[in-house]
Design a binder for these strands. Sequence first.
DNA 1: CGCTTGCTTGAGGTACATCAATAAGAGTGG
DNA 2: CCACTCTTATTGATGTACCTCAAGCAAGCG
Lengths: 255, 255
Amino acid sequence: MVVAKGLIEEFPLAPFVRRLQLHSSLSEADIEALRALPCTIEDRPKHAHLVREGMETRRTAILMTGFAHRYRVTSEGTRQILTIYVQGDPVDLDHLFLPEADDAVQTLQSSSVAFVARQAMRDLMSKHRAIADAIIRSLLVDSSIFREWTLNIGRRDARKRIAHFLCEIATRLEAQGIDPATSQLPLTQDHIADATGLTAVHVNRTLSAMRAEGLIGRKGALVLVPDGTALQQIADFDPRYLHIRAPDPSSAVAG
Amino acid sequence: MVVAKGLIEEFPLAPFVRRLQLHSSLSEADIEALRALPCTIEDRPKHAHLVREGMETRRTAILMTGFAHRYRVTSEGTRQILTIYVQGDPVDLDHLFLPEADDAVQTLQSSSVAFVARQAMRDLMSKHRAIADAIIRSLLVDSSIFREWTLNIGRRDARKRIAHFLCEIATRLEAQGIDPATSQLPLTQDHIADATGLTAVHVNRTLSAMRAEGLIGRKGALVLVPDGTALQQIADFDPRYLHIRAPDPSSAVAG
DNA sequence: CGCTTGCTTGAGGTACATCAATAAGAGTGG
DNA sequence: CCACTCTTATTGATGTACCTCAAGCAAGCG
């Protein structure tokens, strides 16, 4: 049975499907199977933990709206943010295959989260080869992003690091159909510091300088500038590591 | 047909199987299938590229002996080493699922490499669920290691960073049945610098200090100290992120 | 041997951290 | 709608871990 476009828009996991389609092409049958995947949508407040270190989980979480971040903490208590999750991102696919979580995932603002039973997801993967591949590809892209962060923190100065970090988020939001120039990022300067391996004070000074040059938007709430070309140049940003493929018109989920 | 232990020792991909068993348990049938997997073993000299950025590959490489590293380079030409590969590590499983390589992999010393046709590996995965799971788990563990490097570089000082880096390699070598105290690591101080986000000069000074304290072995060729407990304490090293499970006696490949 | 590659050491500079205080929002309850 | 509190942003002064440049040395290797 073919599903009309209008209907597809409605189904709960649509942002997730869109996310998978960023890297993989799915047939109508695959999409239909994802549509039928049982899940529960729950709202979570700001700063809620979706995953905690050492936790064992029976279900896997997918971010439907809002933002979250994954982090680890040193024995001295300093935090390193490891990645930012945006709409449509599965946040803990690791748990489908690894027995215990090695880091924590926390919402950045009140968010809506889809939970899928671990076994249901695995069954789906074994029944639909293309979905299994799409999920593996999703893991690999995440992995590529982690590596880019290592490069970013290890080999770029504060200005470039922050610029690169912002470029990545903007690009990923855009790929998910969200305009980064209008949507405020719920990131404090502390978050940016912990994501880039800097201190909040230094992030503040660097951001001020960048704002003065018009590289990023207004003070207070962080807003990205409409045309990020200048920012990308500073950041040495090459989006290839995100592996976002040209949109495939034949299997579009979003209008 | 059951394979005698003695025979298993012989087969070419044994180090790879041992590596998979670090995280997954495989049945005799699975091991037999891996044993039958067609591959060619080739020797590569020091500094040979196994993967190059942008390259498209029909076959996937597994390190049988020796060492290699994965790296990226900024537009300014600075290098960041992203991970070290040791005996048994598959170095480019990404290519099984992603069309193009986003970083380069280079040997650190003359090494022996097994090449498996991309399609053969994928066929094996679809026929043997446990092997597919083992490979996915392998990807996830790699991913966890990348994240730990981000934490290491982002939130620890030079001394701890280097200590942590060395602890990781020692632990991974040990898990593969190699004694890190006797095997010399073919790492220059340049490599350590690029892996930890430091400069070679600073690595040199930090290593000297650590040697003076007896934390690591002799000058010249880098050798790890037999008992790395002190090093681990300094490094804030908790091996859980490596996800090495207790060895499973029922399916041991190595004696 | 000379040449290359990697290690070592010194002097001086700087990008970032730390500490500390103030200001500005943003939410909350009365 | 104000007063209160808590969080986040801002700014200044000072410190330091690490970088840069530069030179000398040791050792492997053709």
